[in-house]
Design a binder for these strands. Sequence first.
DNA 1: TTCGCCAGAGATAACGATAACAAAATGGTA
DNA 2: TACCATTTTGTTATCGTTATCTCTGGCGAA
Lengths: 338, 338
Amino acid sequence: MSTPRKAPTMADVARLAGVSPMTVSRAFKRDASVSDATRSAILEAADSLGYVFDSTASNLRSQRTDFVAVTIPSINNANFADTVRGLSEGLKERGLQILLGYTDYDIQEEERLVEQLLRRRPEAIVVTGGRQTPRTRRLLENAGIPVIETWDLPDNPVGHVVGFSNAAAVRSMVDHFVSVGITRIAFIGGDADRDTRGTDRRAGFIAAMQAHGLDPDRLIAAGTPPISMREGADAMGRLLDTLPDTQAVICVSDLSAFGALTECQRRGVNVPGQIAVAGFGDYEIAGICVPSLTTINPLPREIGKRAAELILDVLDGTQAGPATIALEPILMRRQSSP
Amino acid sequence: MSTPRKAPTMADVARLAGVSPMTVSRAFKRDASVSDATRSAILEAADSLGYVFDSTASNLRSQRTDFVAVTIPSINNANFADTVRGLSEGLKERGLQILLGYTDYDIQEEERLVEQLLRRRPEAIVVTGGRQTPRTRRLLENAGIPVIETWDLPDNPVGHVVGFSNAAAVRSMVDHFVSVGITRIAFIGGDADRDTRGTDRRAGFIAAMQAHGLDPDRLIAAGTPPISMREGADAMGRLLDTLPDTQAVICVSDLSAFGALTECQRRGVNVPGQIAVAGFGDYEIAGICVPSLTTINPLPREIGKRAAELILDVLDGTQAGPATIALEPILMRRQSSP
DNA sequence: TTCGCCAGAGATAACGATAACAAAATGGTA
DNA sequence: TACCATTTTGTTATCGTTATCTCTGGCGAA
């Protein structure tokens, strides 16, 4: 089934096609000047030998890998997956491939990952950013390639930024509830600072409540981030048990919000009649569950798309200094809130 | 912010540490014989220079990349994400990194992808398998590395297999319904053969119905695979409109099944009282939605874990011939069915 | 004392493509 | 026909690490 003999190289193809290895190399590039006759002869020879281009050699000699390194907290998250898809589509046309790694929401793991990725000499690196270990930061600063932080607006960014303010996004939700007369608002989130974005959302909730002169203490800790649907449901149970006069609850993600919704269903608690529920992320489920879920769409696909464009501009030299692209998340009013 | 000067190499580190480049190389390996004093001096020198190991050169010279290529249909799918996580964890201890690509459920795209991945000279390749273009098959056969097909049990595998029978899994669901006296069963799936596993599930449904002497024609085409929650809901609407005497419906995935459930909620159709609903995948949502969803757990994490073990065994030479590991998906009886 | 063994370190060449430069072939024009 | 511009092809050296072989010094056993 497999071929034990050594894989053919360009030299083998060149010999068979009666040209020099350099011409074979050119034939495998797009725009290189090779006559049609020669190129097809070469491709035919390559095909008959079962030749597969070896990018390890190409990478070393040309000092280009056509990799863009991307770190995301979790592979199992539709929002980050959308960002990766946006990136991937934007980079594909230029022949750039994504080298993906996930940090499991752990900045120590992120440090290991970033170092591993940089060893592969990517053309650029995209991190789901905000906070990182000092060493990670140093690695990024000295990497000598474009660095893009996403999903956040860091105070002191390493390089470029394509993101949004998690705190401001949650504030807009609080403002919305207050504008319709709701004042007793709770927040369901993680019980640790592992997930920096989740932490920012909770901080945004507290700040917004205080800005309205409201009590920001209805905080339900739902477990180690990221919070699952089940943990969201459990947290909602505790909220209904301990603070039954709560009028609305904002959840750190749509998944926990959906879990919370199901707990209300199980208990016969009417949403939004007795309590309003809001999420974050605008996952597909938010639009289709019953009642549909009020949430915030942080434009994950757009983040990826803009990051890809930015990378291409920087690599082309079109983009000079560090850019910060701040996106405006969209409040999606649906049935789970008034 | 970035360093315009050329990145330091092992030679620079060697000079600063007062040793030969070869010794630096050894110091960066695990088991290589370097005295502790020398090693720490080298690492210190490397750190002070901001040296980052260059694997492009290492890859070429050592003919090893420590990549395992993995293709999945979609990055935005919790089942495949679980398989990737299982793979990733199993390979990490050996220093193998995953090079991930997705095919968008398109075998032409898969062909392009497989070729791109093979150019990077991975140590092994894992495909979400079953059917591929002739050229893809040829590329895999001649790649000279272990090939693992997953999520399927192909009739004529390229190499190794870690999967299950999609048809048999759906048959078990049909058998379950028949065993509780349900005979008018429908199937909601895609309207094209793009998704080979979805197609197998539909074929399994038809065969199982025929085996029981039942009518297999209650087939609802829900759109281009993969079917979304929304498309599942629309399909359920059509089913209720056109075949209102249907007693149960099996959906090609949990996502479409959940969409179908929500449509029942919207119409006030009782599940499972008026109609039973089943899905496929055992996504988290299946366990928590109301009513919870009867489904099939295909053990996605286990697939990844076993595939990783198999790869390590093959690379070690422990595993001789091509292996086929057939897993048994688990029928999860929940509230959406009797 | 001699020999063998081994840990620790160095010297050399090579992995397979391509950047950079050079030369030959081609085509159009004066 | 001669000449220049352009296209097409070839030659040489090299990217940064490491496989492989060699060498040195120290230590224990005979």
